[in-house]
Simulated scan of single mutants.
Amino acid sequence: MIPLFNYPDLQRRFCEGFTFYPFKALEQYSGFIYKNYTREDHMPNVLDHYSREYEFNDVQAQKLLRKLQQKDIPVTGELLFKLQLSSRQLEERFRSLKRSSAIHRQLLETMDTYHRLLAVYQHNVQERIAVQLSVVPDENEDDPCNIVSVLHIQQVQDVVREFLQSTEVMAIYLKECVAGKRRFAKLILTVEETDNLQELVSLTAQVRSLQDRNFCMLEEWKQQVVLFERRHTMN
């Protein structure tokens, strides 16, 4: 909520840095304090236009936050649960076999490695970004616009890109496993296990698609920040 200032406060804030108040007839509009030189200078319209320059930051933040909360984090959580459950079931059956092949150990190790990677990504990236985006700016801050930097967005994109690469490797591995490719010739799965792995393939594809979309949203946000910075440099 934007505070409403009395007239002495308006003068003090507008004339900050002066030892006296050289400006009079000050007015407040939303979060702006301005000098009104004519009765019909349409300053509110000008200030509304100026405010819209900063709206993209809030719009992009809210879009990404909603997506993380409603789609990314729930789907990632489901994949984490299904990975752990399938891994435990496979491990129990493999232990009951008289002879366990190297492909059994490789499958379990691959699933465990990706599970740990996914858990870290959810906690350190998805959930942390969601918390940062949901923080309400302090209304007393000197700069209420809080424009996100290009560098910050690029850093997040780099993390998303690395995760996408790992997810692509996992997706291919699971697909080949379900399809019974040559390197999985010694892996005999039950119908239930095959169905479970197929579900993991589907969930992995969903996670990958969501992260692809995040990367594109971040790229759009970054380009808007670049444009914003260029305009202000020119001004």
Rank of each mutant, 00 (worst) to 15 (best):
I33M: 00
Q224K: 04
E55C: 09
A119W: 14
Q224G: 02
E168A: 06
R99D: 11
Y114V: 06
Y7S: 04
A179T: 03
K98Y: 11
G31Q: 10
L164H: 08
Y29Q: 01
S149F: 12
H123E: 09
E193M: 09
V178I: 06
V148Q: 14
R161A: 12
G31A: 10
E162D: 14
L4W: 03
Y54A: 05
T19N: 13
H104K: 00
R183D: 12
D9F: 01
N57P: 04
K35Y: 11
Y7P: 02
E27P: 06
N196Y: 13
Y34I: 08
D158E: 13
Y37G: 10
H232L: 08
L117K: 09
P22V: 11
H115Q: 08
A119L: 15
T194I: 09
V201M: 03
E176A: 07
R99W: 09
Q28S: 06
A61S: 11
R13Q: 01
E162N: 14
E139W: 10
Q132P: 02
S101D: 09
V156W: 07
H42M: 11
F18G: 08
L4Y: 08
D72K: 01
L68Q: 05
H115S: 12
I2R: 01
L68D: 05
E91L: 08
H104I: 02
G17L: 07
K98P: 07
T233W: 14
I147S: 05
M234A: 14
D72F: 02
F23G: 01
L10A: 01
E192S: 09
E219Q: 11
E40C: 12
T190V: 10
L79D: 04
T233R: 15
E192V: 06
E27K: 15
L97V: 04
H115E: 13
I153Y: 02
R88N: 07
D41Y: 15
Q84Y: 10
V225F: 12
S134D: 07
Q224A: 05
Q154V: 03
E219V: 04
D48A: 09
F32T: 00
Q106C: 04
L26D: 01
G77H: 03
I153L: 15
N214W: 04
D143A: 04
S30E: 12
D58M: 13
W221G: 02
E16S: 09
L64K: 06
I73T: 00
P137D: 04
L4E: 15
E109T: 15
D143M: 01
R213G: 11
L83V: 01
T204R: 03
T194G: 14
Q198S: 15
D9Y: 00
S30Y: 13
R105I: 10
E199A: 14
E16T: 04
S30L: 10
R208P: 00
R99C: 11
L65T: 01
S202G: 05
V160T: 04
P8F: 03
Y173T: 08
N6C: 09
S87M: 11
A119T: 10
Q206S: 13
E27H: 14
W221N: 02
Q69R: 13
R116L: 14
Y29K: 00
L164P: 00
E141H: 07
E139Q: 13
R12W: 00
L133H: 03
P144W: 02
S51Y: 02
N146Y: 08
M111A: 11
P3M: 05
I103Q: 10
R128S: 08
D142H: 09
